[in-house]
Design a binder for these strands. Structure first.
Lengths: 217, 217
DNA sequence: GAAGTAAGCGGACCGTGGTCCGTTTAAAGT
DNA sequence: ACTTTAAACGGACCACGGTCCGCTTACTTC
């Protein structure tokens, strides 16, 4: 195994309350048969290694299967399609971010007032997305699929909840979409890399947007 | 050397809207050889017909080539790739919308005050995108490619210009991105079709967002 | 109108995503 | 232990996107 990034054990562990968070994040822990669970871990590990070696663009399903020592069909059955594999890889790397805003210390964690958490969330998300932008961009093939990604849904409901708690003006869910859209990975990447915009300007705009909806720090 | 291809650099976006607009709108009309121009028209026509008959998902490059009576290579040379073909089809259908906000009557056209044009633009864009959502969604494969699509660039610079004219608060270009993002096709489709949200709520949210940045009708 | 040339053409060819189906195997029942 | 059964496996197979390269053809020049 030798986890590169997260010390988080992958095995499906139903019933444990603490893993319910990851459960919400991963969507379907899906009691797997022993061999299936083992192969799933092997595949994610192999994909991670290939990813750093060859980049997302050269990550083929067959190479992942070969590197994990399983058949090609196994990869597809487990992850449905290439995008599914990339999303699984991403979800796996979100543990840190999720921990930060679900159980971490202020200003992001639950011990800070909602307004403060909101203001802190944007910049943190931008940093996180910058760190994983290659994988994120590669996983955005079907534009509608985004709304089904567990991590995205978690962020959305988190922001929506905070907006409601902070008594933000307007419809919380719509505003949450607007907020998250304003710092969506492709946009941020385009503005910073292609248009040379400073990332501080984007953070500023996040705070500005919150302020205009009555969410003062 | 006969410059055939695109003068796409266009890095800075100075004030001159009109020249950029036509340029951005047409993309690359670019003097083609007679046979090439004829084949381009044949291909777009064939693709259009296949689109209504079989849907975007079943539109294969080979079938388009066959329906137009040309070789497969010709399709790729003209449109670069499948996404390029879809974008070309889309651009072709944007003529009406563009005419409406570039040269049409108030409240969208140039004879209305900027604030009014902005308020009218959102709902009109949403209607347009709903009418062509299948093609739009199918063309969104590469998330960064969106920012290169002529029609998108045109919309962005149009909204940016209007925001500047209307003395909107904040950075015009960033706000333009946020505004357009809040009614982006995939989002609108998700909210209305999957979540059962009423489209009026979305229009309302567009007006609200404008108002909060000081753009009153 | 002949010659020269660069763009255009077509279809064989390749790699990869995705499916299918006969075989294997983990686990639950007896 | 033996049977049963549904899940998992693997790799042959297919379709489609995209490339390549030798041939053709529209324009230019003289």
């Amino acid at each position: 195994m030798t986890a590169l990034l997260p010390p988080l054990p992958e095995p499906p562990d139903p019933g444990d309350a603490r893993t319910n968070l990851t459960l919400a994040a991963t969507g379907e822990p899906e009691m797997l048969r022993a061999d299936a669970a083992r192969n799933r871990a092997l595949l994610l590990d192999a994909a991670s290694r290939l990813l750093v070696r060859c980049g997302a663009a050269n990550l083929t399903m067959e190479s992942v299967a070969a590197a994990a020592g399983v058949g090609k069909g196994t990869v597809f059955r487990r992850f449905k399609d290439r995008t599914g594999l990339l999303i699984a890889l991403l979800d796996h790397r979100e543990a840190l971010l999720q921990a930060a805003f679900l159980t971490g210390p202020p200003p992001m964690g639950p011990d800070a007032p909602a307004a403060e958490r909101l203001h802190a969330f944007g910049p943190a998300l931008m940093r996180h997305e910058r760190d994983h932008h290659e994988l994120i961009l590669a996983s955005r093939t079907d534009p509608l699929r985004t709304y089904e990604v567990p991590a995205q849904r978690l962020r959305l409901s988190h922001v929506t909840l905070l907006l409601r708690q902070a008594r933000a003006a307007g419809e919380p869910e719509l505003l949450a979409h607007t907020l998250l859209g304003s710092i969506d990975t492709p946009l941020v990447h385009h503005l910073t890399c292609e248009r040379g915009m400073d990332i501080d300007r984007l953070e500023e705009s996040w705070h500005d947007l919150l302020n205009r909806y009555g969410v003062q720090r």
